[in-house]
Amino acid sequence: MMTCKDVERFLDDYLDGSLPFATRIRFEIHVRMCAECRPYIARYRRAIELGHKLLAEPPEGPASEAVPQELIDVILKSIDES
């Protein structure tokens, strides 16, 4: 029987989908039965998503933000002077 500590050890491989089949089944049985691991994993996963959504590169496409010309001018000037 897998323990919470085992679940912790296998968690990243589980999220990557790289756990061997038999281990994944044992992992999922524990999580289904464990009232602490279920919310733990939900929160662990959410922490990863929060970081990704805040910091990841936005998808390709035209910039929707207004670009102040004076900012571009200041950047080009600082590069010229460097």
Binding site: T3, C4, K5, D6, E8, C34, E36, C37, R38, P39, Y40, A42, R43, R46, E49, L50, H52, K53
Partner: peptide, 21 residues
């Protein structure tokens, strides 16, 4: 995270969080 001698989680978890967005 911390575990007891049986390998069970020690700290209680809160409710599942809202969606990241």
């Amino acid at each position: 995270p911390t575990f007891d001698e049986r390998g069970c989680r020690v700290e209680s978890q809160g409710p599942a969080p809202a969606e990241a967005q």
